[in-house]
Amino acid sequence: MIEHRKYTVLFLCTHNSARSILAEGALNALASDRFVAYSAGSHPGSAPNPYALELLRSQHIATEGLRSKSWDEFAQDGAPHIDFIFTVCDDAAGEVCPIWPGHPAKAHWGVPDPSRVEGSDEAKRHAFLEAYIQLRKRIELFINLPFEKLDRLAVQQEMQNIGTTLREQGE
């Protein structure tokens, strides 16, 4: 998998308002020298969840340009070539995805939906923080994979392992 360009990553979730937005922001903040992250949804909402944007800002992660968008944008001519796709919600994992040019490596990293939490603002903020922590741990493992030493199949397996191993450990 040795290449001299940045890898592109697409995080998918149904509404592209919380988990996928958190993941896009986190990856771009952690490894923008080697990766370009995007996010999208099968049925995008009108805007990112305000709690997601608030959390990213609290982590000193830029939120300019983050928006809820359809995954169709990334299956069209002229769209960025996508190397890796992660579904971060169970709904998107079960949907029929578009055919992605270049056949990117895919993995499912299910994370509970923080936007479904009811109660106080504090409870909602806590749920978003928990989702962010889970995603960040996975992203940190992913960006530290030895891509130059792994073939495509091995990378795909490692991507899946990151999602299942941490889930089994209860993150």
Rank of each mutant, 00 (worst) to 15 (best):
Q76D: 01
R57E: 12
L53K: 12
E54T: 13
L53I: 14
I85L: 01
A40S: 05
A75G: 04
Q59N: 10
L66S: 15
A75C: 11
G45R: 04
G41I: 11
F84A: 12
S58E: 05
S42H: 08
K69I: 06
L55W: 08
G65T: 09
H81F: 04
I82T: 03
P48T: 10
Y51I: 00
I85E: 06
G41W: 15
Y51R: 14
A52M: 02
T63P: 03
G41S: 05
I61T: 02
F86P: 09
H43K: 13
A52T: 04
P44Q: 00
E73R: 13
L55E: 11
D72M: 11
A79Q: 03
I82R: 01
Q59W: 12
D33R: 08
R34T: 00
A40K: 06
S42E: 09
F74T: 00
A47K: 11
G41N: 13
L56T: 08
D77W: 05
Y38P: 11
Q59F: 14
W71F: 05
S46G: 11
R67F: 14
E64L: 00
T87A: 13
G78W: 02
D77P: 15
D33T: 12
A79P: 06
A47S: 15
L66G: 15
S39N: 10
S42A: 06
P48Y: 10
F74W: 09
V36A: 07
D83F: 00
S70F: 12
S58D: 15
Y51W: 10
W71K: 11
G78A: 05
P50M: 07
A40W: 00
A75D: 03
I82Y: 14
L55T: 04
H81N: 11
P80C: 02
E73A: 14
H43I: 02
